[in-house]
């Protein structure tokens, strides 16, 4: 990717008339600010409403926070029907293990394709690229049957282990490896008598850390947000993840509910991701293009 100076409409017209350029820039900023408000408004309102009591929420709209955040949080932690704390714990366990396994084994798959030469390698590589776009939903029926057959319902294994075969993660890591893993380094380690598994773990893996980190974040987030598959597998309320509990919240008789609690629960499942994102945004925004566009 080239630098900023590299690109569009370096137009003489606007250079000469700096007034027009200023006006154009002003329009850009106004539009960008409006769009930013459109993106952030919902989360701001969520925060405000999570601090208000049910009675206050009934009184209508306000932009100012109230003082009931602690009370609302206490209520959701003690809520027996929707166990949000165990839901968060389950989500964290599943997403973290998924990110870990998926990136480790995708790096291994990429390593196999990148470093070794064997029969059928090209075909395998093309095949993995070809299945990249196939959505998981189309095999959901067979997946549920399989999980039932293996007696793994209400178990986290069918939500974690399948991520070992992740074509998109693989492709990203393969691209990165092609540019950043010198084969001479592997040769040298072989001459030193290092075992192949040792070379992978001690030499290749550390060199891949930047790419692995980006993919780990994306895998974590998509597992964290996943609703369709976990909802088919997890039925026991102590095993449910956050998205399933949110759906249950939608299912619950809405008006009888304490709206303060409803907002607090939504906030509880959204804000941790926002906080983490604010710290990692540099890597995440930078990582989008590398994974999406094949350059």
């Amino acid at each position: 990717m080239a630098g900023n100076t590299n690109s569009s409409s370096a137009d003489a017209e606007f250079k000469s008339a700096s007034g027009t350029l200023k006006a154009r820039r002003a329009v850009c900023y106004v539009v960008l600010v409006i769009i930013s408000i459109l993106c952030l408004f919902w989360f701001y309102m969520l925060f405000i409403n999570a601090t208000r009591s049910n009675d206050e929420l009934g009184q209508g709209f306000t932009l100012l926070p109230s003082s009931h955040l602690g009370e609302n949080l206490k209520n959701i932690f003690n809520n027996g029907t929707i166990p949000i704390v165990s839901g968060m714990a389950n989500s964290v366990i599943i997403a973290a293990l998924t990110a870990l396994l998926s990136t480790y084994f995708s790096t291994m798959t990429a390593y196999s394709i990148q470093v070794y030469n064997y029969k059928g390698k090209k075909a395998i590589f093309t095949f993995i690229l070809a299945i990249m776009m196939i959505p998981t939903q189309v095999s959901a029926l067979g997946f549920v049957n399989l999980v039932k057959g293996m007696n793994l319902e209400d178990n986290f294994i069918p939500l974690i282990v399948p991520s070992i075969a992740a074509p998109i993660t693989f492709f990203y890591l393969k691209q990165y490896m092609a540019a950043n893993l010198p084969l001479s380094l592997i040769e040298a380690a072989r001459i030193d008598g290092e075992h192949e598994i040792g070379i992978f773990n001690k030499i290749a893996l550390p060199l891949m850390i930047p790419a692995i980190a980006v993919q780990a974040i994306f895998t974590f987030v998509s597992s964290w947000n996943n609703y369709f598959t976990p909802a088919l597998i997890l039925h026991d309320s102590s095993k449910k993840t956050l998205p399933i509990l949110i759906a249950q919240l939608r299912n619950a008789d809405f008006l009888k509910f304490d709206m303060g609690q409803v907002y607090a629960m939504i906030a509880f499942s959204i804000f941790p991701v926002i906080v983490v994102y604010l710290f990692l945004s540099k890597y995440i925004v930078g990582g989008v293009t590398a994974g999406g566009v094949k350059e």
């Binding site: 960008l32 769009i35 930013s36 993106c39 952030l40 919902w42 989360f43 309102m45 969520l46 409403n49 987030v221 964290w224 947000n225 609703y227 956050l242 998205p243 949110i246 759906a247 919240l249 939608r250 709206m259 409803v262 907002y263 939504i266 499942s269 959204i270 991701v273 926002i274 994102y277 604010l278 945004s281 995440i284 925004v285 989008v288």
Partner: peptide, 23 residues
């Protein structure tokens, strides 16, 4: 601006939908 416009992409779609439902 890039950080802000990318933010909604990472939000749990189910929670975001629930938020819109209440909003």
């Amino acid at each position: 601006f890039k950080t802000v416009i990318y933010l909604p992409n990472l939000i749990m779609a189910s929670a975001f939908a629930m938020l819109f439902f209440t909003m």
